[in-house]
Amino acid sequence: MTTKNIYQPFKIKIDKIEKHSRDVKLFRLVGDFSKNKDGTVFMPGQFVLASHFGYGEAPFGIASSPYQDSYIDLIIRKTGILTSALHQLKAGDEIFMRGPYGNGFPVDFISGKDLVMVTGGCGIPPIAALIEYINAHRDRFGRVYLIYGARTPADLLIKDKLKQWEDKIKVLLTVDKPAKDWSGYVGMVSELVDEIKIDSLDAVAAMCGPGPMIDALEKILRPLGISDRRIFVSMERKMQCGIGKCQHCVVGDKYVCQDGPVFYYDQIDKSWG
């Protein structure tokens, strides 16, 4: 009897690497990804475990369109040993990967409703995948807003995408420390609320944090009248196995890797932090 090896990673080639900020790079990984019956290769909000032998393995949210079956994009900030090693690689190099894992955003539930997305800095990947999903059939969704924050304008990632998305959704940018020519918002401020016109009884929020989360919740989402049950949050935790065994990512009774990473807010608000 041979059991399937759930830990088996597969080799994947780096097609290109783009520098997006001082310490963040985007990695485009090419492969033949098998499509699910709805035409997607993963659900927006799902993650993969990417690894570079000798330096370890870590979870990363997928940032590209779920309908793209020839590549996936990972946006990686240089923070530890693995990410530093990845940052030294070049196009054509190979790394390893397994997944996708986790639940992803509940796109069927969001469908037909207004949506406010909030994220900051490196929290953009799962939100980016969700936007790509929405834009692939924009008519299925109501009014859609993205509030994207960063420390400084230079820390805003995937700027070309942000520009491109403006045709289909409303993009609101905010920074903590504006540069001279900055015309967007400063901080998670309540003025952002005035820009958002939604039917609060039929609206959903999606967040990826933890950065601006609490601020956004208090200053934007609650004033907008979106209930906690309709706020979906993608959580970050330490993960080793990705499949509910190693116990690192657990919060109470929930495995962030299996039951999440996306939770609705009142599932997790008490165990936040």
Partner: peptide, 9 residues
């Protein structure tokens, strides 16, 4: 049965 996964060269 907690475990971690680490690379070794």
């Amino acid at each position: 049965h907690c475990f971690s996964i680490e690379d070794q060269v």
